[in-house]
Write a protein that binds this DNA or RNA. Structure first.
Lengths: 251, 251
DNA sequence: CACGCGACTTGATATTTGTCAACCGTTCGA
DNA sequence: TCGAACGGTTGACAAATATCAAGTCGCGTG
């Protein structure tokens, strides 16, 4: 699935957004300059494989626009691990540890990605104390998100995971009772750890709780009924919602 | 399950082992002294609840001896998330972020635990650059371990998880073809995301691959057969093996 | 416009996993 | 020493989930 793509160097001005990330905002101007010197921005069409698990981590990636699917494979099977949306980094841990990627990454939409050489990140980590501290915050955040995801999978049935996912999306949509799924249902099914067929049936099972689905359009007719069934917990479902400029909310 | 326990202050000399952890070995003598000033060591009998998910993180915990089970609950269900063995910290991410615990912790054996006030850890994090960097390494390690665990659950059946678990334990046992399970089977079943009944049957299903079980004693008669079935992958199964003094091996 | 492709759905069926109840064997304490 | 408690096992059954095959629908292209 997906193919590789080369080329696409962009002017330096495109890095503007990167500086707004908490990870980089605390850096000295010096080390930020140093870090961006070897970096570049690439535009990717949808469905392009950018990195593959097992490879060594040459670049820290920053999603500037679009969306990237992190996925993993084993023995001919494949599962979606996370969807990364702007503005966020991915594979930070592999970069810092200079260890192989544990996940593969592909675009699921047309995306603009900043690529920062891993060795430069590690150099900045050694040289800039504030940058090192920012990385701690970022990693702790990532760690807690994975733990929550893992709890989700181990403690809930697929139907419960879907119900809680919809409630989380509703929060993201500002509490509106109507919103669109942010990607294809087959991606969602893999993210939730189920088959597309199972997801399709799960949506039907949520009709009694006031969930109406039309294509990607979701209508939560009775949030209270859905919440009563889903029993969302802040210790599983409060995922850091991202706004430009940093992370918002407890995580 | 388990009860709370108070008291049990110990003399300072008991902290010796803590200094050997990579997390603390790089600290300045000053900040280490500062950090240990408010810390103490407690002895816990088995099956004692030490922390509960949702509580605020008052202490960073270090397992000096024994074993601690990290587990999570939701809606009346419970699952084992990880077993922490000496010498390792747990709930570092919650401590750093000053956020609620995502997991509960109980001893599964008689254990000696060092308790370091979270606010002191955060103060040391602010004051000591090398300590901040050590935390990065530790968190990146933890993050990658959870990702591997998550891949294990999403990509494998329970039988495959058991087979690979046994192979990992064999490595821990120095490659010996006979070793003991490090804890009760019901804990193992929860850790692997299955019921005790299912685990019992899974062991039987591995007989054709040369796995002989007698109580906690495991005999891998034909490692090659088991490996052929389990198909272990470094990107899932290479978990950092801990030795006194630091982490060993790629993770 | 018709065609084909891809995403999604639906039905039938199989596999995996969980639940419930009964039972075995060991341990530990009255 | 007896027996209750507990961990583990087993069997019968139920629920959750996956698989396979055949659709439907919408959309973009030749």
């Amino acid at each position: 699935m997906g193919q590789r793509l080369n080329g696409g160097y962009m002017p330096r001005s495109y890095f503007g957004d990167v500086r707004q990330l908490h990870l980089f905002s605390e850096m000295t101007e010096d080390s930020y300059e140093q870090l961006m010197r070897g970096s570049y921005v690439q535009n990717f069409p949808p469905q392009i494989d950018m990195i593959h698990e097992g490879e060594s981590s040459d670049f820290l990636h920053v999603v500037l626009s679009g969306a990237v699917e992190l996925y993993a494979s084993w023995n001919g099977r494949e599962t979606s691990m996370d969807i990364v949306r702007p503005i966020s980094t991915f594979i930070l841990a592999a970069t810092i540890k200079d260890a192989p990627y544990l996940m593969s990454a592909r675009t699921i939409e047309k995306s603009r990605i900043a690529l920062i050489p891993s060795q430069d990140v590690r150099a900045a980590f050694d040289a800039d104390n504030d940058f090192a501290r920012a990385i701690v915050t970022e990693l702790a955040q990532c760690y807690r998100t994975v733990v929550k995801t893992h709890k989700d999978v181990k403690l809930r049935t697929s139907l419960e995971r879907l119900a809680n996912y919809l409630l989380r999306q509703q929060v993201r949509a500002g509490g509106a009772d109507k919103f669109d799924l942010p990607f294809e249902k087959r991606v969602l099914s893999s993210l939730l750890g189920m088959t597309p067929e199972n997801l399709s049936r799960a949506f039907k099972s949520l009709i009694p709780y006031g969930v109406v689905v039309d294509g990607r359009a979701i209508h939560i007719q009775s949030p209270s009924d859905l919440r009563e069934f889903a029993k969302p917990s802040p210790l599983i479902d409060d995922r850091g919602s991202i706004t430009v400029g940093g992370t918002v909310g407890e995580t």
